[in-house]
Amino acid sequence: MDLSPYLVMVATLSLAILSPGPAIIAATQTAFAHGRDRALPYGIGLATGASLWCLFALLGLAVVFRLHPALFSGMKVLGGLYLIWMSWGLWRAATLPLPAAADGRFGRSFWGGIVLNLSNPKPALFYSALILSVFPDPLSVARQIGIYAACLSTELFWYVVVVLVMSTTAMRSRYFAARFWIDRAAAVALFGLGLVLIFQR
């Protein structure tokens, strides 16, 4: 089995996860304010909720392409344009103030983390575009399972790492110092994938 598409997917997803947004900021601030005992289940919930969008994207793509194969090319172009649009937003965001953190309206528990990430449907578009760009052919059930396992593992890994690292206050300044480069690296990666998705045949 060729592992290179999975490596590309994991690398791109990692950059997207680490680019500061409401969920990762919520995990960070929960770790700062409440410590790892409370923040760890919350971070795992956030990761699980985000990975469900990958599952929804996989199931939706499989059904759509099975019923309407002619939509495949159109979806690739739309997915590529979405990735390019997202890359522009990340590039600009690197020099802007951080977005507001998601508040505790869903609670700071495992289930609260799941609900928080499910309340934002944008990851479904991101996952759809990412999967189409890295795996351009229709997917078998076995490959769909492999993709979901890789995405879930990546989400869990980074949310757990962020919570554990940010539970130590000494890391706060280093995290915010690296934000510019994280955003810019993610923007370049997404822009490249967008172009590949549009022009690859």
Rank of each mutant, 00 (worst) to 15 (best):
D2F: 10
L3C: 10
S4M: 12
L7Q: 12
A11D: 08
T12L: 14
T12W: 09
T12M: 12
T12Y: 09
L15D: 06
I17R: 01
S19M: 06
G21R: 11
G21P: 04
I25W: 00
I25D: 01
I25T: 11
A26V: 08
A27E: 04
A27F: 04
T28M: 15
T28V: 14
T30C: 13
F32R: 11
F32P: 07
H34P: 07
R38Q: 15
A39F: 07
P41M: 13
Y42L: 12
G43T: 08
I44C: 14
G45A: 12
A47S: 09
G49T: 02
G49W: 02
G49Y: 00
A50D: 11
A50E: 10
W53R: 04
C54D: 02
F56N: 04
A57K: 05
A57N: 05
L58V: 07
L58F: 11
L59D: 05
A62T: 13
V63H: 06
V63E: 08
V63N: 04
F65L: 15
R66G: 14
R66C: 04
R66I: 00
A70R: 10
L71R: 06
L71K: 03
F72W: 12
F72T: 13
G74H: 08
M75H: 10
M75Q: 10
V77P: 09
V77Q: 11
L78E: 11
G79F: 08
Y82M: 11
L83I: 08
I84E: 01
W85P: 04
S87L: 09
S87R: 09
S87G: 14
L90R: 08
L90E: 07
W91Y: 14
R92E: 12
R92W: 10
A94M: 02
L96Q: 15
L96F: 10
L98T: 07
A101N: 09
A101R: 13
D103I: 06
R108L: 15
I114R: 05
V115D: 01
S119C: 03
N120L: 05
P123L: 00
A124N: 09
Y127M: 14
Y127W: 12
S128E: 04
L130Q: 03
L130F: 01
D137W: 08
S140W: 03
S140A: 02
S140R: 00
A142M: 03
R143V: 15
R143F: 05
R143Y: 03
G146L: 00
G146Y: 02
A150D: 01
A150L: 02
A150F: 02
L152H: 00
E155R: 03
E155M: 11
E155H: 14
E155S: 02
L156S: 00
L156Y: 01
F157Q: 03
Y159M: 12
Y159H: 09
V160L: 08
V160E: 00
V160A: 06
V162G: 02
V162N: 00
V163W: 02
V165C: 09
V165K: 05
M166E: 11
S167T: 14
A170W: 13
R172A: 12
S173T: 11
R174P: 05
R174Y: 14
F176V: 06
F176R: 06
A178L: 15
R179C: 00
R179E: 07
R179I: 09
W181E: 07
A185I: 08
A186I: 03
A187T: 01
A189C: 08
L190H: 09
G192D: 04
G192F: 01
L193T: 05
L193A: 02
I198H: 06
I198R: 04
F199H: 03
F199E: 01
Q200C: 07
Q200T: 12
R201F: 10
